[in-house]
Design a binder for these strands. Structure first.
Lengths: 118, 118
DNA sequence: TGTAGTGTGTAGTATATACTCTACATATGG
DNA sequence: CCATATGTAGAGTATATACTACACACTACA
């Protein structure tokens, strides 16, 4: 699971690198604010995935969805957690009940909520 | 915020203690599997809230909602996180969109989902 | 009066998290 | 051929998390 994260990041980066030299491991590492050797180890799954902040920076640079990247790292973004913590009962119930709903049904709910007639 | 957690636990425990001697700090601590001195500090907000497992045990003993207790401790239960991580995009969007919905509207969605016509 | 139970203070610990720092070997381009 | 850049190896570090272990003082009650 941690390995998957690294592999995926490496794949994304290599793709970017094919188009722009700004995406060498070293340069990217510096841009996201970590040591190259660290990013190297992360990409090869030799180190656990980085912190939420670092993953967010990574997502920005790689044009990836931060929530997806965080999920691969076994995390849930802290802003989502904060929302849940404000109304724990309500959200806990909702999420557990949606656990086994198929994607299309969840999406329908999302749309319903977004177009909010509430 | 961490203080609030301890205060609340103490309040719950004292209420139980008024009815049953099984709820002395010491006995409860042993039952949930920690040292009494530790629980003491937690209740007085002198130590950060305990781990998820310990909070869950606490909730069981005190007949409290584990999600609520966890929320007071600044955490979100790991099973909820796991559900979110399986479909990060979907759930992230849903939760963020529900952030500002009033309780009754959220509840309506919960009911709708529970009575699932999907 | 002693002993059993109560809560608390102080110090210490094991493990995890999230990295840095330095050095190295290889490759690449001018 | 040499300067620069690339990825990687190994060791070390600072901070947080989640506790334990032990000693102490107070109270109740038999």
């Amino acid at each position: 699971m941690a390995a998957e994260f690294g592999e995926y990041v490496r794949k994304c980066r290599e793709q970017k690198k094919a188009k722009s030299a700004d995406f060498s491991l070293r340069k990217l590492a510096i841009r996201i604010g970590v040591e190259p050797s660290y990013l190297s180890k992360v990409e090869r799954g030799q180190e656990a995935p980085p912190s939420e902040a670092t993953i967010a920076a990574l997502a920005r640079e790689l044009d990836e969805d931060p929530d997806v990247l965080l999920a691969m790292a076994g995390k849930v973004s802290s802003d989502l957690q904060r929302i849940i913590r404000k109304r724990p009962k309500l959200f806990a119930q909702l999420i557990r009940e949606m656990k086994n709903m198929p994607n299309h049904a969840v999406l329908r709910v999302v749309r319903e909520v977004r177009d909010g007639d509430w």
